[in-house]
């Protein structure tokens, strides 16, 4: 089997040290978090990082903590399995557990991290669509200090993000969802086990005064465009009417039109376009029924 080729190795103890290494390094340094994507690409010869900066010695990057009454903060090095099993997240952001369960195999989830999944910027990321509809904001540290950006504007293309040299994601903040809301994440893979998404849809929906009136809706689609995308036009269309079968079908057509899937070795463009409609309709109905049965307040 293929062996990893040698690289310069750094193991910073603090965030400041990490930022310093990243911005000071003459060689292109890659961040090592869970390694489940990075090491595969290295073994496959897709990348040959001259240097790796292992983030695991930095304390405080892997916790899930409430931030007062406003929301919850997930450290960048939190594993997908920790998200899957977190009782705090299950209480307030069940969708995160749903998305986490869909990612890879249980053993991959024990290694893979949230920050790594976001930073990799895969169009087929299992976490990104749910994070987008939950209005996730990323806390980023870098040579010019800390900043916060909405996840929606983080991705710039397949594998590329707005991160500047020396910057890294430290945590993800999720605001608490409104009352009478429901969410769903649905994914289509090839087999039943660990699978890369052919298409995936996350929806977050808040009901108004009646059970068919939508107060707010967020729709995000994965694996059907260059980046995990928010379907703004579809959202507007949903808001323009009340939830009926006809309206949902109309919205499904809109979401298919709004995405730009490609043909690759996993599926054809036309199949993806059809599937995004199916996934969308099912996810919308599911989030709607969850919203109806949710408590009035959190």
């Amino acid at each position: 089997m293929k062996r990893l080729t040698p690289f310069s190795y750094f193991e910073p103890a603090t965030l400041a040290e990490a930022v310093e290494i990243l911005s000071g390094s003459k060689e292109k340094a890659y961040l090592l978090a869970g390694g489940t994507d990075l090491l595969i690409r290295m073994k496959r010869g897709e990348i040959a990082p001259p240097a790796l900066v292992n983030l695991k010695r930095i304390s405080g990057l892997s916790s899930i903590e409430r931030e007062g009454q406003s929301g919850i903060r997930i450290g960048a090095l939190t594993t997908i399995a920790e998200i899957e099993h977190s009782s705090a997240l299950r209480a307030s952001h069940t969708l995160m557990a749903e998305a986490a369960t869909a990612l890879g195999s249980p053993s991959i989830r024990n290694l893979a991290t949230l920050g790594g999944n976001i930073g990799r910027a895969s169009p087929a990321s299992d976490m990104a669509p749910s994070l987008i509809v939950l209005k996730a904001r990323l806390n980023i540290s870098g040579p010019r200090g800390n900043k916060q950006v909405g996840l929606e504007s983080f991705f710039t293309g397949p594998g590329t993000t707005i991160l500047q040299p020396g910057e890294l994601i430290t945590s993800v903040f999720l605001p608490d969802p409104a009352a009478r809301s429901g969410a769903a994440y649905l994914k289509l893979g090839r087999g039943g086990g660990m699978d890369c998404a052919l298409g995936c849809v996350a929806i977050f929906l808040t009901l108004g005064n009646t059970d068919t009136e939508v107060k707010e809706v967020l729709v995000a689609v994965g694996a059907c465009s260059a980046i995990p995308m928010r379907a703004n036009k579809t959202e507007a269309l949903i808001l323009s009417g009340s939830l009926t079968d006809g309206h949902i079908q109309e919205a499904a057509m809109a979401v298919a039109a709004e995405t730009s899937p490609i043909t690759d070795l996993r599926a054809s463009e036309s199949y993806r376009r059809q599937m995004v409609q199916v996934l969308f309709s099912r996810a919308l109905k599911l989030s709607w029924s969850r919203a109806r049965s949710s408590k009035d307040t959190h």
Partner: peptide, 11 residues
């Protein structure tokens, strides 16, 4: 916890 040893550095 189960992990894939092929994707973990010994360090």
């Amino acid at each position: 916890k189960p992990v894939n040893a092929c994707l973990m550095l010994a360090l």
